[in-house]
Amino acid sequence: MFRLLMYLIPLALTIYAFIDCLNTPEDEAKHLPKIAWVFIILLFWIVGPVAWLAAGKLRTPPANGRTPSEWHRNHRMEYVAPDDNPEFLNSLKAEHKKDEALLKDWEADLRRREEELKRREQGEDPKAG
């Protein structure tokens, strides 16, 4: 029974620290980037999770009694999908106008070249007209 606990407790501690690290926002990870903490937790079985729990995360109570997830939910980006973002939609309109102008130029160039070919086929001098 004791042997089983010797493996289950560190495993549970590692799983808890790993999930806690993944759920922690990047700006709340202290001393190292979050990805480094993930590797430390997974590579150093007992020391890694203890280090994460002791020094890896800001552990201050949130302002106004809110939970950290509430704070992040209320302060996330205003637009979730690109089609809800007016700046993105305006940039698509600008690209569309630019593409339309380019297409018109290409069509005019194509018409000019086709007329030159017709003149050559009819025996006219293309530089004369």
Rank of each mutant, 00 (worst) to 15 (best):
R119A: 10
L5P: 00
A81M: 10
L92W: 11
L32Y: 13
L53P: 01
R112H: 06
R59I: 11
A81W: 14
R120S: 09
P49N: 01
L5W: 02
P49I: 01
D99A: 14
L103S: 13
I46Y: 08
Q122P: 00
S91L: 11
P33N: 14
D20V: 11
E78N: 11
L58C: 08
A94K: 13
A128V: 04
V47I: 15
K118N: 11
L5H: 05
L89N: 04
K97W: 08
C21L: 07
D99E: 14
K98E: 12
R119C: 13
E121F: 13
L13E: 01
V50N: 02
W106H: 07
A81D: 05
A94L: 07
E121Y: 12
W37Y: 10
L117D: 02
A36F: 07
E114I: 05
P25W: 10
K127H: 13
P82D: 03
E28Y: 13
M77D: 07
D84L: 12
A51S: 06
Y79S: 08
K98V: 03
H75Y: 04
V38I: 14
G56S: 09
R59H: 03
K98Q: 14
Y79P: 11
E100R: 14
A54R: 09
L11S: 10
N23P: 00
I9G: 01
E87F: 07
L89V: 04
P10T: 02
V47E: 14
N85M: 01
A55Y: 14
E70I: 01
N90V: 05
T24Y: 06
E28G: 00
N90P: 06
I46N: 03
M6Q: 13
R66S: 05
L89A: 05
I19Q: 15
E100H: 11
K30T: 12
W45D: 03
L53A: 09
I41D: 03
A12I: 10
A29T: 15
L5I: 00
R120Q: 11
G129I: 15
R73N: 08
I46E: 00
P126V: 15
I9Q: 10
W45M: 02
T24R: 03
F18S: 12
D27W: 12
L4F: 04
W106G: 04
W71H: 06
L89R: 13
V38L: 15
A55C: 10
L32A: 12
Y79R: 08
M1F: 08
A81G: 01
E115H: 08
M1L: 09
P25I: 15
E26T: 04
S69D: 13
H75T: 05
V38K: 13
N74K: 09
P33G: 09
R59K: 07
E114Q: 14
N23E: 13
E107I: 01
L102I: 08
A108G: 06
D125C: 05
L53Y: 02
M77L: 04
K93P: 00
E100T: 07
G65L: 01
W45Y: 10
L43S: 12
P10L: 00
R112E: 00
D99W: 10
W37D: 09
E95L: 03
R111T: 06
D99G: 09
P62C: 13
A94C: 02
P10C: 02
P62K: 06
P82W: 12
W71M: 02
A36C: 12
P49G: 00
P33M: 10
A94T: 14
L32W: 11
E95T: 00
L5R: 03
A128G: 06
L58W: 05
